[in-house]
Amino acid sequence: MFNVWLGDDGIVRQIWAPQAEISLAQAKESVAAIVRLTHGEYIPLLVDMRRTKFVDREARAYYASPASRITKAVALLVSSPVSRVLANFFLGLHTPKVPIKMFTSETEALKWLKRFVA
């Protein structure tokens, strides 16, 4: 459903599979995977949701909750209208507690995230 790894640049990347429909269980799994990778350290995160099909409401609520606060900053990489709508919900309806920004360019996203690398 997703791949996640820590780059040499100190940025975690999480790429969702095409047509992914993210439920609450998958949201929790994605957060757990990041925690395992970073050992609980707060690290900037790039989420590639360019081909994500849907994020259900419970998953969205989970991402907005304190339980998923595991990063220093989040860059949402979008392209399709659907992915922009999804990202917008993260930015708008569920007020994030960490810096979060939507990008259509991966380069710009990584450039922005590097500001948060320790």
Binding site: R51, K53, R57, P81, V82
Partner: peptide, 22 residues
Amino acid sequence: TTGDRADEVDGIITGINMLAEE
């Protein structure tokens, strides 16, 4: 119901669905 195209119409439908949920 959305299609598989992820185009503007799917985006509109996805937005409608999410707004409806909210």
